[in-house]
Design a protein around this nucleic acid. Structure first.
Length: 492
RNA sequence: GCCGCUAUCGUCUAGGGGUCAGGACGGAUGGUUCUCAGCCAUCAAACCGGGGUUCGAAUCCCCGUAGCGGUACCA
């Protein structure tokens, strides 16, 4: 088993990079988790290695099948595919064997303290300014104590005995350091219900699965010496560690499901119309950089260029504006056909689209919208008036462009009436003809182009912004335009 | 409380003994235009503080300070 040389020569199997992403299925995949997955995946791909997805579901009370599947979905959407897959709850016997070994060789012991007693010990330790919050009192139980506890029906936990010697932690991102054993306490590695705990299963599986590099968030930094201690007690090989800085909110606090809810859920960004490419590109730059000029990276470039050495040490704030910029960039990158495909689900979920709509028309709409989408979802406010006339007129727009005095409104009515007449009589309902006719009308009558156009825009779309109005007029069709203008005049 | 980590424009970051401290997002201004977006041009904006070392420090060392993370029979 342990024929791996301890010298400078590295065995063939260790030459092959094996990394893992080990989420606990207690909720959706969040931004930080996505980044951890991405870093691991990129590192594996860059090194022609293996990326493993391991579901760390030893917390049976909080783990759910549903969130497990949500994590799969999010990862698949991002294009982060795994080569191997494990579920810890199915590996119980593996851990049990190791625990038996630990108990047998005296590196672990049963602890009969109740949660209430533990709480008391903790409180006292804190009051006494102690470093440890558990004093290891069950290391040396008398037979009387033991008998009493058993008689009371107490179910023990198993604790690991922490060593007396300093533990050296090597970290690719943070560097090496020695951990004073006085700061380490005897961790619970098996709960009283028999379920093993994270620090135990994690390091066992890392060894069993021959993980070469553990890339995870710095919230695990304090777990690392504990896990190393467990591995040492078991004679297991320890992987290399790379602790990546936290993803922070705008207040500088760690992003978490608990405090930020859906704001951190990857699947939510999907629903809102963010592209996986944008998500990946955004998230990878949180803590990692390539040089002083490149911001946009394709997945292939990322695989080629990703390097653990270029990960920074300080936390990064999640800036939605940057994500939005990246997203619009990637949307604009799509050709009209692809963009139309991407946008159709959003029209559908708004109930704007029925199956009879013709493809060419839809693509023309997308073409007209041009680079105005920050998210795919933006297509709804940008284009809803193409599909029906059940929109309201934006009050602010009305006030500004239709006018708030009777005098101004009368002028607007006049303009719209004239335009209506022009469009009714126009020989050909195409862009050039319409544009020429309208400009002729405004210029000859000394009407500001913008005033006429905005008045018409509101009449046709209800809003004061959007694509070129001539595009809209043509796309809407003559019948529809001729219907909407009188409706607007009446509303005025 | 205890243990640990970190510190460059508002944000993501480059640089890492000699640079006008660079880029990007965001912001501001002007231009283009039927609006918005876009595009183009321009601008504002940073080395946490204090001591050293040195001819020279954002960069190296020390001491502070601040922020964050952990402190569970969660992961």
């Amino acid at each position: 088993m342990s024929d791996t040389p301890s010298g400078t020569t590295v065995s063939a199997v260790k030459d092959h990079v094996r990394v893992r992403m080990a989420p606990s299925p207690t909720g959706y995949l969040h931004i930080g988790g996505a980044r951890t997955a991405l870093f691991n995946w990129l590192f594996a791909k860059h090194n022609n290695g293996t990326f493993i997805l391991r579901i760390d579901d030893t917390d049976t009370a909080r783990s759910t099948d549903e969130s497990m599947h949500e994590i799969y979905d999010a990862l698949k959407w991002l294009g982060i595919n795994w080569d191997e897959h494990y579920v810890q709850s199915e590996r119980r016997s593996v851990y049990d064997d190791y625990v038996a070994q630990l108990l047998a060789n005296g590196n672990a012991y049963h602890c009969y303290c109740t949660p209430e007693e533990l709480e008391e010990i903790r409180t006292q330790a804190r009051a006494d300014k102690q470093t440890r919050s558990y004093d290891g009192r069950c290391r040396h139980l008398t037979s009387e104590d033991l008998e009493r506890f058993v008689a009371e029906g107490r179910k023990p936990t198993v604790r690991i005995k922490m060593p007396d010697a300093p533990i050296r932690v090597d970290d690719i991102v943070l560097g090496s350091r020695h951990i004073d054993p006085a700061t380490l306490e005897d961790e619970v590695i098996v709960r009283s219900n028999g379920m093993p705990n994270y620090n135990l299963t994690s390091i066992i599986d890392d060894a069993e699965m021959q993980i070469t590099h553990v890339i995870r968030g710095t919230e695990h930094l304090n777990n690392t010496p504990k896990q190393i201690a467990i591995a040492n007690a078991l004679g297991l090989e320890v992987p290399q560690f790379a602790h990546i800085p936290l993803v922070l909110d705008s207040g500088g606090r760690k992003m978490s499901k608990r405090h930020h809810g859906d704001l951190v859920a990857v699947n939510r960004y999907r629903e809102q119309g963010y592209l996986p490419e944008a998500m990946l590109n955004f998230v990878v730059r949180l803590g990692w950089s390539y040089d002083d000029k490149q911001e946009i990276f394709s997945v292939d470039e990322l695989i080629e260029k990703f390097d653990l050495a270029r990960i920074g040490k300080s936390g990064s704030v999640f800036d939605i504006k940057k994500l939005e910029w990246l997203n619009s960039h990637y949307i604009n990158q799509l050709d009209v056909a692809a963009r139309t495909d991407a946008v159709i689900p959003f029209w559908q979920s708004e109930g704007l689209l029925d199956s009879t709509e013709d493809r060419d028309w839809l693509e023309s709409i997308v073409e007209a919208v041009g680079e105005r989408l920050t998210t795919l979802q933006d297509v709804v406010p940008q284009t809803r008036y193409f599909f029906n006339d059940e929109f309201g007129y934006d009050p602010k727009a009305i006030k500004k462009w239709w006018g708030n005095s009777e005098e101004k409104k009368e002028k607007t009515r006049e303009i719209l009436t004239n335009i209506l007449q022009i469009l009714e009589e126009i020989p050909a309902f195409d862009l050039q003809t319409i544009e020429a006719a309208i400009w002729k009308y405004t210029d000859e009558n000394n009407i500001k182009r913008v005033a006429a156009m905005q008045a018409l825009r509101i009449a046709l779309t209800g809003t004061s912004f959007g694509p070129s109005l001539f595009d809209i007029v043509v796309l809407l069709s003559r019948d529809e335009v001729l219907k909407r203008i009188p409706k607007a005049i009446a509303h005025l």
